[in-house]
Amino acid sequence: MKDENHGEVWELRLYVAGQTPKSIQAFANLKKICEEYLAGKYRIEVVDLMENPQLAQGDQILAVPTLVRKLPQPIKKIIGDLSNTERVLVGLDVRQV
């Protein structure tokens, strides 16, 4: 029960719009959190909507940056530059190890 997440792969997708300070900040924050809490069991895909605008519709992206937890289900979304680690963990539903 405690190790519910064990063995699962966290599939995360970060939507950004170009290389803005906010998106760079968001990616750095995300990387840090993942290394700390999900080391070795996460995958981050960065989608630049400037290059692929058609992808915005699929995940209902409005705000950037938006982090989408594709796996494990259900889908979760976190918007903003992910500067508040605690809220990111709550949003991703990651239990502190």
Partner: peptide, 24 residues
């Protein structure tokens, strides 16, 4: 679709995603 229960907010953001969708 904007569903508050699915969305967690943390830090700065903007609605560039919406602009891109509209533009597209």
């Amino acid at each position: 679709r904007v569903e508050r229960s699915e969305i967690e907010e943390t830090g700065e953001y903007d609605l560039e995603g919406l602009f891109i969708r509209l533009s597209h």
